[in-house]
Design a protein around this nucleic acid. Structure first.
Lengths: 331, 331
DNA sequence: ATGGGGACATAGGCTGAGGTTATGAGTGCC
DNA sequence: GGCACTCATAACCTCAGCCTATGTCCCCAT
């Protein structure tokens, strides 16, 4: 099996030359990503073609005409400079390069589905059948996946999402403004029943270029405690857990950098500034694209519980129960 | 902190009603993803606004005019039904909902960057300064990340990619048609030097709804061997490793399903058909969105080496060495 | 052999999303 | 009070992408 670019690259110069001609010629070849990557519709079309084996059927599935699909696919191939699909009078098959591109495209489309699920929950508010309140970390990293699964299992369940910190989530449940909540932390908020649905682990990460990425054995707690780290600001959940875990080992050193958001911490770590400590939920992408690597640490407990919570006595039923069923098993 | 949809939802019916009106009214509300998710340009714009704190600066960064950015952002907010950005006469800040949406958007954009890096390598062929040949699994899951990193560290390195199975990769290196190769497998191909850059682990996965997802202890090798699994066809690398590992434990049972591609195996597993065995590289997304969970297995070695290879005597130098430096540290 | 049906490609015409410039209006600083 | 910065509005333009209609190729069934 081989996959290699095999299309003509004609017209590339033309595209590059056109983009952003009038405004802002001061920079270098600044071509925004959106001009180098086919749009979501084209990627989705490619996935349909891969699955259905026919341009026309893919077109029908997407609600467009066959010529539209044909031309769109061709435009995508011209843009990438690679032939993706082998047409024949009785169907279409991916080329080897096409199979590779399709898999990369699938990851974009899946991220878009998670986006859609999340955005949908953010929009549909009080009129929803299931009102969820969740901590930021859970809302950001886990809920979209659950919502996609929920949609698969129980289509038509409208979910609304309210994201806040743990105490506000608890507040909302007690007020009856939400049906089901998700928080992370060591103990369940007062006045609420709950169940542990999994665990979140804090991980020490560095850029692959950092010395710690190459060391043989794990880092000892004392070494971690003594090393200046990239951290969230004091008061964040992550920082609290880390502080508690390392207190017995000499206490946290003065941070190397103290940043306001998880994203900022990640960026700093990726750029090689130093080791950072983050929720493992936050670094899945960075691990799989190898921008960050985990540094094993020995003998420190860096876990916190992930909890579903609800008002005392009101056992989740109906859609809340459905969602709860999807959340078990992590950690 | 709270993040909730707070925008008007006007115009939603209008959009839905327009899409796909003429062709194919036979289905239900079939609105392709592309119409529910803002396009890449808009998402990128949102990320710039989040980072730069100003609509106009974000516009300049993207090479468009400020009014264009303004209108585009507004259109995105209308589409999502959520106010994302708080404008003020001296800058713009994300709302809480906007912060959440921005993080989801970032994942789409990152997937698009990986796509771009891969597609670029697929297009630029013999004229590139670094010709890489890689096995399918590595080309698909790891190389895009490396290429992004390489672009960061050494801009201007043009990479071409040839993806094939291990023996073809070896062939190409011996012929001098590639400068650096990547293969997975237990031993290095003949006639080539190489270095182990990491390991790939096979994992047993199920849908979260499967009984194995909820069991307490790990699965014993004998139990795994006796259970019908969803597998790649005989002859695939995955299948070979699994076969060898379980031979001592009674040998692999007749498969539940035998499918031709990794994607097909994943889909079957996600839909709950049964347990599947896959490279951990292939299931990162499914883990983080919780569509699949890992089932621990006891006492079986399901690892295979990931190897960088090159012609005997020709130590990688220049760009090949740069790339090699980025690949160390996995597993 | 010959017509039917499915596949993809080509041609010509339309629409609208998204771009541009020009301008207005609010805020803070010197 | 002007200047520098923000964002919003208005009026216009262009082209990407859609449609329908038609052509060509291939396979199969009559």
């Amino acid at each position: 099996m081989s996959a290699e670019g095999s299309g003509d690259a004609r017209g590339r110069a033309g595209r590059a030359g056109r983009a952003g001609r009038r405004a802002g010629d001061e920079g270098a070849a600044r071509v925004p990503l959106a001009h180098r990557v086919p749009d979501l519709g084209a990627l989705e079309l490619l996935l349909f073609v891969a699955r259905l084996g026919s341009l026309g059927r893919a077109a029908r599935e997407m609600g467009i005409s066959q010529p539209a699909a044909s031309s769109r696919l061709r435009a995508m191939e011209r843009q990438l400079g690679v032939v993706l699909v082998e047409r024949s009078p009785r169907g279409s098959r991916l080329t080897d390069a096409g199979a590779l591109v399709t898999d990369w495209a699938r990851r974009i489309v899946e991220a878009a589905e998670a986006f859609d699920a999340g955005a949908h929950a953010l929009r549909d508010r009080r009129d929803s059948r299931l009102r969820v309140a969740a901590s930021m970390t859970i809302a950001e990293y886990l809920l979209p996946g659950w919502l996609i699964a929920l949609r698969g299992g129980r289509p038509g369940t409208a979910v609304s999402l309210y994201a806040a910190n743990s105490s506000v989530v608890a507040q909302r449940l007690r007020e009856g403004a939400a049906d089901l909540g998700f928080v992370e932390g060591t103990d369940a908020p007062a006045g609420l029943d709950g169940a542990i649905i999994g665990h979140d682990r804090l991980v020490v990460v560095t850029a692959p270029s950092h010395p710690w990425a190459r060391r043989r054995g794990p880092v000892a707690p004392e070494e971690l405690a003594a090393t200046p780290l990239i951290l969230r600001e004091r008061g964040s959940g992550t920082r609290q857990v880390l502080d508690a875990a390392l207190r017995a080992h000499g206490g946290l050193a003065e941070p190397l950098l103290e940043l306001a958001s998880t994203t900022a911490v990640k960026s700093a770590a990726v750029s090689g500034a130093g080791p950072a400590v983050l929720s493992e939920l936050a670094v899945g992408d960075e691990f799989s694209t190898r921008r960050l690597v985990e540094v094993p640490v020995d003998g420190v407990r860096l876990r916190r519980d992930l909890r579903a919570v609800w008002p005392v006595g009101e056992r989740p039923a109906g859609p809340a129960r459905d969602l709860l069923g999807l959340t078990r098993g992590r950690g």
